[in-house]
Simulated scan of single mutants.
Amino acid sequence: MENKEEHLKQIDVLAIAKEMKKHKKQYLIALPVTFVLSCLLILCVPRYYTSTAKLAPEISSFSSSSLGDIASSFGFDIGGNSANGDAIFPELYPELIESNDFMVGMFDVKVKSKDGSINTTYYDYLANHHKYPWWMTGIQTVRKWFAEPDTTVVKSKKANPFLLTKQQDEIVKLMMDNIKCNIDKKNYVISISVEDQDPLICATLADTVQAKLQDFITDYRTKKAKKDLEYYKKLSSDAKSKYERIRQQYGSYSDANQDVVLESYRLKANDMENEMQLLYNTYTSLQAQVQQAQAKLLMQTPAFTTLQSASVPLKPAGPKRMLFVLGMTVLVFLIISIYSTRKIIFGEME
Rank of each mutant, 00 (worst) to 15 (best):
E5S: 04
L8P: 03
K9H: 08
K9P: 01
Q10M: 11
D12E: 13
V13G: 01
A15Q: 11
I16A: 01
A17Y: 12
A17H: 10
E19V: 06
K21Y: 12
K22I: 08
K22L: 10
K22C: 02
K24W: 10
Q26V: 10
L41P: 00
I42N: 02
L43R: 01
R47Y: 06
Y48W: 14
P57N: 00
E58C: 01
S61Y: 10
S61D: 12
F62A: 03
I70K: 10
S72T: 12
F76C: 03
I78M: 06
I78N: 01
A87S: 11
Y93G: 00
I97Y: 01
S99L: 11
G105W: 07
V109M: 07
V109S: 02
D115H: 00
G116N: 09
I118A: 03
Y123K: 09
Y125V: 07
A127I: 02
N128E: 09
H129M: 07
H129W: 11
H130L: 15
W135P: 00
R143I: 12
K144Q: 03
W145F: 09
P149S: 01
T151D: 08
T152L: 11
V153N: 09
V153E: 07
K158I: 13
L164C: 02
T165L: 14
Q168G: 00
D169F: 13
K173R: 14
N182Q: 07
N182A: 02
D184H: 02
V194L: 08
D196Y: 14
D198E: 07
L200I: 13
A206S: 06
A206I: 05
A206R: 00
Q214I: 13
F216S: 01
T218K: 11
D219C: 01
Y231T: 11
Y232N: 05
Y232G: 04
S241E: 13
Y243C: 02
E244S: 08
E244A: 05
I246E: 06
Q248M: 15
S252D: 10
S254G: 13
A256Y: 09
N257I: 12
D259R: 13
D259W: 12
V260P: 08
L267V: 11
E275G: 05
Q277T: 09
Y280M: 13
T284R: 14
Q287H: 04
A293Y: 11
A293T: 07
A295Q: 10
T305E: 09
L307D: 00
K315H: 03
R321K: 15
V325H: 04
G327D: 07
G327H: 06
T329H: 04
V330N: 00
F333P: 05
L334N: 05
I338Y: 13
S340F: 10
T341G: 02
F346N: 11
G347A: 06
E350H: 12
